[in-house]
Design a protein around this nucleic acid. Structure first.
Lengths: 345, 345
DNA sequence: TTGAAAGCGGTACCAG
DNA sequence: CTGGTACCGCTTTCAA
C-alpha cells in the first residue's frame, strides 16, 4: 500500500538538479538546454511521473474542473446534457463534478457553495423548480466564478444562457393539436417561476388565441416539482379529469410530466387518443414504442450541454472579462405520432 | 471581479494572532481558550471565511472526492446508480467526478489515470464492454487507491464488488418464458468478456436445460458494445430473424439491447408477442407504457450505487487495510407483462 | 542555462 | 494557551 507517486523534488535529487530546473524542463521552457530536457523527461517518463494536480491548482488558482448543477441525473434530458458537456470537458482536460438539487432551492444553494469551495473554475447551472431567488449564485459570480445557465435560467443574474426556443416549440405543438381538431386543450406544466414554464405557456396560449380558443383557468395545472414525484402529476391529471368539462387533449410540458401523465392515463384505462390525446416535451429515446406512440417535442439536449460547456470554457480561458452575455437559442423538433391524432368520428 | 476569498492568514493578521492559532481555533482544538475561539469564529463567520480545500487536500493527501467510471450516463441503469451514489457522497461530504468510457477500453484506462492524477480518494468502477484486461486498474490499486467494482466486474482484480444476482435473474426470466410455452428462445446479449454476460448466459442455459430445451449456437447473439449503437442490435436481431428456424422469443440481456431490439421488432411490424415475444433486463421507469407492455428484469440500480459508495467510503476512511473483499449480491425483480405472454392458439 | 528561495493556504510539530 | 516554523508539490521571480 505504498503510494508510488514521484515528485519533482525526487527527480531533482536523483538527477542532481534543482526542482526549478526540473519543473521548467518538464514544461519545455525555452531557457533549458536540450540536454537537460531530454534527461529530465526521460527520467520522468521512466518513473512515470505525473504532476500533482492539487499542488498545481493551489499554485495557479485554476483547478481545471467545472461544476454542474442539475435537478436530477435520472432524467433523459439531463443525462443527455451531461453527455454533451462531457464531450467538451474530456477533450479540453477539464473534469466534471456533478451535483443534484433534487428540485430543492436549499440544496441548490448548498451545492453551489460546495462547488465554489471546491475551487471549480466555473459552473454550469440549471435551476431547480423551487428556485425563486439566485442570491447564492450572484454571490459566487461576484466572487469571480464564471457561470453559464442552461435550460432553466433566471434573468435575475446576467450570464450566458443556452436554452431552446420553448415558446416556438410549445406553439408548434399546440398548433398541431388544434389542427388535429382538438378544441379543449389543457396543459400540465412545471412550477410557474421557471423560465421554461413561462415560455412554454406563452407559446401554448399564443397558438390557442390565434385560433380563438379559450383556456379556462383550471386547464393549466402546475407540478411544483416538475413531476419529480409521481403524486403531483397524478394530482394534476386527476384535477383535469374531474372537471365538469374535461379537456380532450393534454400538453405536457416536461420529460417527467409527460411520462407521468401518460402512465396515469394508462393506469386509468383511458383511451388514448380517443378519449384523451396527449403530447409534450419528452427526451425519451424511443417514444414510438409507447402505446400509442407518443407525439413529442424533442430538445437537442446533447447540443445544449456541448454549447454550454463551450461557452463556459471560453469564459474561463479568455482573459477579456466578458462584456455582454450571449443567449444561445436552439430549435426544438416536433415528432407527430399517434397519441395526438384525432380519430375520425 | 475581485476574488473575495479570505484566508487564515488574513484572519490572523486582522486579529493579531498567529495563523496556527487561528487554524486551531477554527477546528475547535482543545488547547485554545474559549475567548479566542469565539473571537476567531465570529470574525470568520462575519467575513464568511471558508477553508481552501485544495490547500487542505494538498496537506492531508485526501481530496474528499471520488471518481466514477461508467460506460455512459444516458442509460437508465447507470443514471439511477449515480443517484444512489450521490445520496451517500452528498451526506458524507464527498464530491463525485464522473467519467464515461463510452465502451472503449482505451478511454477507460485514460479515465482511470486521469482520476488518479486528480487525487481522488477512491474509485467506483463499472468496466466497459470492450475491456479484456485491467492492468491500469491494478496499477492504481497497488498505488494505494481504494476501488469498488459494481455491475460489470472483473475477477482479475480483487476489490469489493456490488452486483446483482444475474444468474438467478436470467434463470427466472427464462423459466417464465418456458412456462409460457415458448420452446425456441434466443438471447441477444453483451460482449462475451463481461461478467454480466457470462452470468446471464449461465442462468439462461440452466433454465433451458432443466426443461430439456436445446439452444442452437446462432440463438445467442452478442452486441460487442452493449447495444450502445443501434446498428449492432439491429444486426443481431436480423441474424435471428434470418434463421431457417427463427426463435419465438428473445431474451435481451441489457437495458440498451432491450430497447433496441424492441424498437427493431416494432420497425419491422412484427407482432409482439404473437410472432415474437421479448423480455429482458431493463431499467426504464415505465415499461408498462410500451406496446405491448414489456416484461422486464429490473435491477436495484439505486441500491447498487448506494452500496458501492458506502463500501468505498468505508474503505477510504477505515485505517485497517482491508483483508478480504466483500461481494455484495443484490436480488433482481421480475415483472411479467404482455410482451412475453404466449397467445392462445 | 541553472539555482535559491518565496509563496499558494493550511496543518502540525516543537517551543515557550 | 499561543507562536514560530517547516512542509505538502509545484511555479516563478530574482540572481548568478
Amino acid at each position: 500500500m505504498k503510494r508510488d507517486t514521484i515528485t519533482i523534488t525526487d527527480i531533482a535529487r536523483a538527477l542532481q538538479l534543482s526542482s526549478a530546473t526540473v519543473s521548467r524542463a518538464l514544461r519545455d521552457s525555452y531557457q533549458i538546454s536540450e540536454a537537460t530536457k531530454q534527461l529530465v523527461k526521460a527520467y520522468a517518463k521512466q518513473h512515470n511521473y505525473h504532476p500533482n494536480l492539487l499542488a498545481q491548482s493551489l499554485k495557479s488558482n485554476k483547478s481545471k474542473s467545472i461544476g454542474l448543477l442539475i435537478s436530477s441525473v435520472p432524467n433523459n434530458f439531463f443525462a443527455e446534457v451531461i453527455n454533451g458537456i462531457e464531450s467538451i470537458t474530456y477533450s479540453s482536460g477539464y473534469h466534471l463534478i456533478i451535483t443534484q438539487s433534487h428540485e430543492s432551492q436549499e440544496r441548490e444553494a448548498r451545492n453551489i457553495e460546495h462547488l465554489h469551495w471546491r475551487s471549480v473554475d466555473g459552473m454550469l447551472v440549471s435551476l431547480s423548480s423551487e428556485t425563486t431567488e439566485v442570491s447564492t449564485l450572484q454571490k459566487i459570480q461576484s466572487a469571480g466564478v464564471p457561470i453559464v445557465q442552461f435550460d432553466r435560467v433566471s434573468d435575475d443574474i446576467a450570464t450566458h444562457q443556452v436554452i431552446v426556443d420553448n415558446k416556438d416549440g410549445a406553439y408548434q405543438l399546440t398548433k398541431h393539436l388544434v389542427q388535429s381538431g382538438f378544441t379543449r386543450i389543457a396543459q400540465i406544466t412545471s412550477a410557474p417561476v421557471l423560465s421554461i414554464t413561462r415560455e412554454r405557456k406563452e407559446g401554448f396560449l399564443t397558438a390557442l388565441n390565434e385560433h380563438y380558443l379559450s383556456t379556462p383557468e383550471p386547464y393549466i395545472q402546475h407540478c411544483l416539482h416538475g413531476g419529480m414525484n409521481l403524486e403531483e402529476t397524478e394530482h394534476a391529471l386527476q384535477q383535469l379529469l374531474d372537471l365538469p368539462e374535461p379537456p380532450e387533449a393534454i400538453f405536457t410540458a416536461s420529460d417527467r410530466i409527460t411520462i407521468g401523465t401518460f402512465a396515469g392515463l394508462h393506469k386509468r384505462n383511458i383511451n388514448i387518443p380517443g378519449t384523451m390525446a396527449i403530447a409534450g416535451f419528452c427526451n425519451f429515446s424511443s417514444p414510438e414504442l409507447f402505446h400509442p406512440s407518443l407525439t413529442t417535442i424533442r430538445q437537442p439536449a446533447f447540443e445544449m450541454g456541448k454549447a454550454a460547456a463551450e461557452l463556459l470554457i471560453g469564459l474561463i480561458e479568455s482573459k477579456k472579462n466578458s462584456r455582454g452575455f450571449e443567449k444561445r437559442v436552439l430549435p426544438t423538433e416536433l415528432f407527430i405520432r399517434q397519441s395526438s391524432v384525432k380519430l375520425p368520428g
